[in-house]
Simulated assay, not measured.
Amino acid sequence: MAYASHIQGARHGFFGRVDAVVKSFAEARAQRRVYRQTLNELRDLTSRDLADLGIARSEIPFIAREAAYGKA
């Protein structure tokens, strides 16, 4: 028979809200990091490389946003 040695319930109240805010902040930071990295990498490509990929320079911010935040 198996026994649980440590059970942690859902956090309620103030600390639960603080925990949710911290997690939300961390997720937003990770998404911004993906956005910036994608944006910088695509901007560093030459016009010829972008043309080979079928990407116009004006599309770069939209592609980076989709990569970081998903389709709207």
Rank of each mutant, 00 (worst) to 15 (best):
M1E: 12
M1C: 04
M1Y: 08
A2F: 11
A2R: 12
A2E: 13
Y3C: 10
Y3F: 11
A4G: 03
S5T: 13
I7K: 07
Q8N: 10
Q8I: 07
G9K: 11
R11L: 12
R11M: 09
R11K: 07
H12E: 14
G13E: 06
G13M: 06
G13P: 01
F14V: 02
F14E: 14
F14C: 04
F15W: 12
G16C: 08
R17G: 11
R17F: 11
R17V: 13
R17T: 05
R17Q: 11
V18P: 02
D19L: 10
A20R: 15
A20Q: 15
K23N: 11
S24P: 00
F25V: 14
A26N: 09
E27P: 04
E27F: 10
A28N: 06
R29L: 12
R29F: 12
A30S: 10
A30G: 02
A30R: 12
A30W: 05
Q31H: 09
R32A: 02
R32Q: 09
R33L: 10
V34T: 11
V34H: 00
Y35L: 11
R36W: 08
R36Q: 04
Q37E: 12
Q37Y: 10
Q37M: 07
T38P: 10
L39F: 14
E41I: 04
E41H: 09
L42R: 01
R43L: 14
D44I: 00
L45Q: 06
L45T: 05
L45P: 01
T46I: 01
S47Q: 06
D49A: 11
D49E: 15
D49P: 01
A51P: 03
A51I: 04
A51Q: 15
G54P: 01
A56Q: 05
S58R: 01
S58A: 14
S58P: 03
S58F: 03
S58V: 09
E59Y: 01
E59Q: 15
I60A: 14
P61N: 08
F62N: 07
I63V: 09
I63S: 05
A64Y: 01
A64F: 00
A64T: 00
E66I: 05
A67H: 14
A67E: 06
A67Y: 06
A68G: 01
A68P: 05
Y69W: 13
G70Y: 13
G70P: 07
G70W: 08
K71D: 12
K71Q: 15
K71C: 07
K71R: 13
A72D: 05
A72T: 14
A72Y: 06
A72V: 15
A72N: 12
